[in-house]
Nucleic acid binder design. Structure first.
Lengths: 244, 244
DNA sequence: TTTTGAAAAATCATCGATTATTTGTCAAGT
DNA sequence: ACTTGACAAATAATCGATGATTTTTCAAAA
């Protein structure tokens, strides 16, 4: 079970010199569980609102109780898990009002963080933005190939986080990360294709161009529209599936 | 052990019809620890930046390891505790830049939440605001009597949270709560008396009056100034103690 | 039929002991 | 004197078992 001496544990997807927002230097079982559980929830593998049975989870993840509980406790901060004394953990439910709040807060927080980034961001940051944009535009997204969806989600998330990564406000960044996580769960659960009347590539490019040009009003307006459109689309899909 | 038929279980400190932001219906050791640890950190009893030795903490709180680790894991979300694999937990350090970020985010988040509250808040909420103001104004704050400082902190916190409690955005409220916690740690650690040139009672009254009058610009401007002044005061005290 | 209450099952919470990792110490080699 | 590396102490992480609480089941009474 334990890796023998001399065996190497390769960290998945850790590329040097790439600012990574999904740190994978995780050593302990608890920390690995945080990543695995987060992915399981965001991807919809663990159903929204469902109770997390500790015995079953223990078995399915092949771990003991202590690291599992600790991992779940840490996930509360991400808003992905809820807890109640003597009633255990459950996956945070989805709802129309929750989606609407997430959309509103993304609009407020991310435009604020973007403005701050344009105010104090350095040239490295600008370069990171352009690189993230390029990668995003070169990443295919085909509803017929599920693995492209997953890859696109990662690159897309990276783009939005890079945009605001110049703001020098770590707390604000962690809030934005949380909101983005929650938002991505809705998209991955309810939205496999983009609405026909949108050209998302153009939207991203406009945001990035405005950003490196330090045109605060333009960039923030485009970003706000972008977030708002996604919210509207998602809301429609939720309504179709009859979610209040 | 089981309460007999007809007996009532009274929750400590739970006054009906009073919106409480410091829920104390905690049953389990882990949940009680979260409260105790949070208070210990905010009050400065646990020194900022210090490592939390699990063995010693275990003894001093008279608990076992599992609930202690779980409680600390939950406190990460409050920004009061940091964690690193195989290196354990430590109390989040204080710094000038951290204080400045907290002040900025409070200005942004709380004014946004206050505007939303004025937009959608109901009459109950208005009443709660006026009650919280009254209680705050009637609570003595004397640097010579430490117990009054503690009481004042609680009522003051309640006032600020009540102001924005009408916004119907639970995630936003939890973020504001977090920022307020972090801010209160700075005040309780570095500030025992108010700056002489301020009349804080008047500031609070103006904010509350503007709020129930639904004068968005006036109320938000007063609130922003209020937060900003506190930030400036704290910054000066940090500088005096030579904290970068 | 509905309600009640006690026993049983399921599940959560906690503990003490064991294992793994990191940190500190000190002597040997350069 | 400075670095290096092995050993020892301190500390963190995990496990399996035990204890406590909640939920479910089901039979008896209204």
């Amino acid at each position: 079970m334990q890796p023998g001496p001399g065996s190497l544990i390769l960290e998945s997807g850790a590329e040097a010199a790439t600012p990574s927002f999904s740190d994978d230097g995780k050593n302990t079982i608890a920390s690995q569980l945080v990543s695995r559980l987060r992915e399981a929830i965001i991807s919809g593998e663990l159903e929204a609102g469902s109770k997390i049975n500790l015995d079953r989870a223990k078995q399915s993840f092949n771990v003991s109780l202590s690291p599992l509980r600790e991992a779940l406790a840490r996930l509360i901060s991400d808003g992905l898990v809820e807890f109640e004394d003597n009633r255990g953990y459950r996956v945070s439910p989805v709802s129309l009002s929750n989606l609407e709040e997430i959309t509103s807060l993304r609009e407020e927080f991310e435009t604020y963080a973007l403005r701050e980034s344009m105010r104090v961001g350095d040239v490295d940051w600008e370069g990171n933005v352009m690189r993230a944009l390029h990668r995003l535009n070169r990443t295919e997204r085909d509803a017929a190939k599920p693995e492209t969806l997953e890859q696109w989600e990662a690159v897309h998330r990276e783009f939005h986080l890079t945009l605001i990564s110049g703001c020098r406000k770590p707390l604000l960044l962690s809030f934005c990360k949380t909101m983005l996580n929650l938002n991505d769960r809705y998209r991955r659960t309810f939205l496999t294709r983009t609405s026909g009347d949108r050209n998302v590539s153009v939207e991203h490019s406009e945001i990035a161009q405005g950003t490196v040009a330090r045109d605060m009003d333009y960039a923030c307006d485009r970003l706000r529209e972008h977030i708002h459109r996604t919210g509207t689309n998602l809301r429609r899909h939720l309504a179709e599936k009859g979610i209040a």
